Computed example of a mutant assay.
Amino acid sequence: MSKVKIKTPSRIHMSLIDLNGSLGRVDGGVGFALEEPNIKIECEEFDDVVVEGRDVSRFRSVAMKLSQIFGKGIKINVLSDYPSHVGLGSGTQISLSVASAFNEIYELGLSVREMAEITGRGGTSGIGVAVFELGGFVLDGGHSKKEKPYFMPSSFSKAKPPRVLARYDFPDWKVVVVVPNLKGFYGKREVNLFQKFCPIPVEDVRKLCHVILMKLLPSLVENDLDDFGEAVRMIQRLGFKKVEVDQYGDLIWGIMDQFDYPIGMSSTGPAVYTVIDTNAKSVGKELERYFEERGFKAHTYITRANNIGAEIFYS
């Protein structure tokens, strides 16, 4: 087997849908894939596990686990990655990219869903797994409470990845993503967030479902940027998304309220995003400046949606 190169998208996680569970299901989510930032690795068959390149610890951890499961070695060169715990889903993309490398090199015949189960991804949100496989905008159906009776973040859930209920190509809009030099909520802090605030009031869940069904999804299908932006703005103040934004106090609410264009926070943050059709560079500078004035350096990605998912190349 020659070398295999894998490139994954990142993702915007717009919101979890139902952390009330009164209908017998929990979680559910909406989000979309991004071209940048991304994970790129080049891999080949090897006797042991060797990982070279950028910030190798996360890749080595996944590779060691999979090496023990499959009884195979691998050599990985990390060509690009992006920070963990900022709301862009690097953990799932790293796990699936490394699993895909084993899968391709050793012809294991695993599906993306099977690789997600093996690596323990998708236990709450299915967006990261789905965009790796499909790209685009995704809505997943969450988990039955028979499988997942408790409210837990993905890193502490053993549930299987949820099924995709809807997937659409994302329009050719520009996406500005700004990541302040700040870590989001993860580990025990994220568990505490779920335990403290769940179940979310059912009325918030109903309002959120109304926005998703009658505003967000139609705006995608009809290529209506104004309605999409209005849906983004509405989502921030509903359900568990409002809980997530609240954890940053005035920092994230302030950026959402200060500018005319709609701004959302991805996952548990602190990455924020806006979807626009003009002036992307100046918007990125404005958002960077907002964080810098409050003591946080920030990095901006000006990108577009990824509508194809992960790519695999051979050399």
Rank of each mutant, 00 (worst) to 15 (best):
W173M: 12
R60H: 01
S144A: 10
M1D: 08
P161K: 11
E292S: 04
R237H: 11
K5I: 13
D204M: 14
A116R: 00
N192L: 07
L208G: 06
G249C: 07
I308M: 02
F228R: 00
A99N: 08
S2K: 13
P149Y: 04
I255L: 01
V30E: 01
V49A: 06
K158N: 13
N192T: 02
S15C: 15
F197I: 03
K7H: 13
V191E: 15
S95Q: 08
D250L: 04
E44G: 11
R294F: 05
S155P: 00
V112L: 06
D277Y: 05
V26T: 05
T278I: 09
R289N: 05
S80G: 05
V78R: 12
Y106F: 15
A130T: 07
G239D: 10
R11D: 02
E107H: 12
F156R: 13
P180F: 01
V112Y: 05
R289T: 07
L217Q: 05
Y301N: 01
I41H: 07
G141A: 09
V275C: 07
S2I: 08
I255W: 03
G264A: 05
K5N: 11
L182S: 06
L182P: 06
S155Q: 14
T274K: 01
E35F: 09
E52A: 05
S97L: 11
K215F: 00
E104S: 13
G89H: 10
L66D: 09
G24P: 11
D277T: 09
Y168C: 08
L66K: 00
S61D: 13
F151I: 14
R58Q: 11
I312R: 10
V26Y: 04
R237W: 14
K207M: 14
S125T: 09
I12V: 13
P149L: 03
R237Y: 15
V129P: 02
E230L: 09
V177A: 02
F240R: 04
G142C: 11
K65Q: 14
P262Y: 03
E292Q: 07
S144G: 05
S157C: 12
V78D: 03
L96Y: 06
E42R: 12
F291A: 03
R237G: 13
Y290C: 06
K285D: 05
E222R: 09
V275Y: 05
A101R: 10
E288N: 09
P201W: 12
L220T: 02
Y261Q: 02
G73Q: 03
F194W: 06
D18M: 10
I41E: 01
Q258P: 00
